[in-house]
């Protein structure tokens, strides 16, 4: 039984991270993936924030799963997620004001992220709290990893920086190198995400 639960959890985690990654395989959470991937820093913090929210909303909904009436379950899930996100936002504004200033719009966006709802509905409603929590963490990390990957290329090629620090040497610019402004715009993000989706599908097919 111990082995089984271990292998089950392992499978759930590896699926969330790779085989059915929320962004590159399920194409979920694209809206926020476009909005926060201009810079690596916002992408990273968004990934962390979302991971915490999915993990805890999964945990709470899984704990309540035998008591939640089926007919209002979606409303209950939204209420739990929204409460968590607003609480996180309030705490950020009270204790980490500078970070919250950079993020406040994006933190609110977590509520509308379909990954959170999706995991609550498909996993937490029918699995134990421990597994649901692990599933939430794994999905959040899977999402955050793609986000950081996209942001890495957008920030590097779009503005020649990483985490806000210039990394393209001045001599490149003098030799005629230009930052690719397209990558800073939404179409650039679509192209980048598309390339990631392609990469993942190609790699999975090879196996």
């Amino acid at each position: 039984m111990g082995m089984l639960s271990k292998s089950f959890t392992y499978k759930a985690i590896s699926e969330a991270l790779w085989q059915s990654n929320p962004i590159s395989k399920q194409i979920l959470g694209i809206c926020s993936a476009l909005a926060v991937t201009v810079q690596l820093r916002t992408a990273l913090v968004m990934g962390i924030a979302l991971t915490l929210v999915v993990a805890f909303s999964n945990l709470i909904i899984s704990l309540l799963r035998n008591h939640i009436p089926r007919n209002i379950r979606i409303i209950v899930e939204v209420a739990v997620i929204a409460t968590l996100v607003i609480l996180a936002d309030e705490f950020l504004r009270a204790f980490m004001y500078d970070i919250s200033k950079q993020l406040s719009v994006f933190v609110g966006l977590i509520i509308t992220n379909c990954i959170v709802m999706g995991r609550a509905e498909t996993f937490a409603m029918s699995n134990s709290p421990g597994r649901s929590f692990a599933d939430g963490l794994a999905n959040g990390i899977g999402y955050g990893a793609i986000l950081c990957g996209v942001a890495f290329f957008r920030e590097l090629l779009g503005s020649g920086k990483l985490f806000g620090y210039p990394v393209i040497p001045e001599s490149f610019y003098q030799a005629g190198y230009h930052n690719m402004g397209l990558l800073l715009l939404a179409p650039g993000a679509f192209i980048m995400i598309g390339l990631f989706v392609w990469l993942e599908h190609a790699l999975l097919k090879d196996k």
Binding site: I72, I75, V76, A79, V80, A82, T83, E90
Partner: peptide, 14 residues
């Protein structure tokens, strides 16, 4: 009943 209870708890927390 569940909805009411949930609303009260969430409102109190917020």
């Amino acid at each position: 009943l569940f909805a009411t209870l949930l609303c009260v708890v969430c409102s109190l927390l917020l």
